[in-house]
């Protein structure tokens, strides 16, 4: 298992080396693109600060993701269960996704205040949509013959749901969760832009407006690493517990 990460790490190191070499070779000014070493050095000097930001943003992301995944699962299952419900509510879901999340900024702050919950809400909001869509689609794709078979053994709705529909939908739900956790991270960062003093989003804002380029790139790099780590976590969960593929 461990050996599979070697090529990825090699690729990352290679990219950093290339970055450094290109910036030095073309004498790119620091305010356009700082060297990789300057960025890594900034991560080193700002470690305590960035660490605090990571802890905060990660907490917002995971809470938002958990809530969004649960809400998405509930709505997806409800839509799969009732076409009428889907017809009434699903257009609202699509509508909500068509509105840029920043438009909700002031509202979220008015409703949930300036604390962590406004960020969690935005992370959850972004996570929920793909989970809803994929849960519904996954559950709908169950072979009706299997449902008939299970029912012939006397299974009720609940039994069909847990024994057939959920396992059948899980691979597609997992695909949505992988997408959702990245969206949750974006939601948490954007949420911090509605006012806070800690978090990666705030560090990003501060660096941007003071044109502190090494810090800006340091935070971008850290966000990227977190994004990859969260994705890898979801992949590991999938490999461990949701290894089957629906036969289509």
């Amino acid at each position: 298992m461990r050996s599979t990460f070697v090529p990825q790490i090699a690729a990352l190191l290679g990219l950093l080396f290339l970055w450094e070499a290109v910036v030095l070779a073309f004498n790119v000014p620091a305010h356009v693109m700082p060297t990789a070493s300057a960025v890594l050095q900034d991560i080193g000097t700002g470690a305590a600060l960035i660490g605090r930001g990571v802890a905060r943003t990660l907490l917002e992301t995971l809470l938002g993701f958990a809530i969004g995944a649960m809400v998405g699962f509930a709505f997806g299952a409800a839509f799969a269960w009732s076409r009428a419900l889907e017809r009434v509510l699903f257009p609202l879901f699509i509508l909500s996704q068509a509105i840029p999340v920043i438009a909700f900024g002031a509202l979220v702050v008015m409703w949930l205040g300036n604390g962590i919950w406004s960020k969690v809400a935005i992370a959850a909001y972004l996570t929920a949509f793909p989970v809803t869509v994929n849960t519904c689609r996954g559950m709908r794709s169950v072979d009706p013959q299997r449902v008939a078979l299970l029912r012939s053994f006397g299974a009720g709705d609940w039994r069909v749901f847990w024994s057939l529909q959920v396992p059948f939908a899980l691979p597609s739900i997992m695909a949505a969760l992988k997408l959702g956790i990245s969206l949750g991270l974006i939601g948490a960062i954007v949420g911090e832009w509605f006012g806070d003093t800690v978090g990666l989003g705030i560090l990003l804002l501060q660096a941007m407006y003071m044109e502190n380029m090494p810090r800006l790139w340091a935070v971008i790099l850290v966000c990227g690493v977190i994004g990859i780590a969260l994705y890898a976590l979801m992949e590991a969960i999938e490999r461990r517990w949701v290894w089957w593929r629906p036969e289509l």
Binding site: A106, M110, N114, E192, W193, G195, T197, L205
Partner: peptide, 13 residues
């Protein structure tokens, strides 16, 4: 003290 940010309107709050 509630800090602000882009897209947040202090007047409407």
């Amino acid at each position: 003290i509630n800090p602000g940010g882009p897209n947040l309107n202090a007047e409407s709050l």
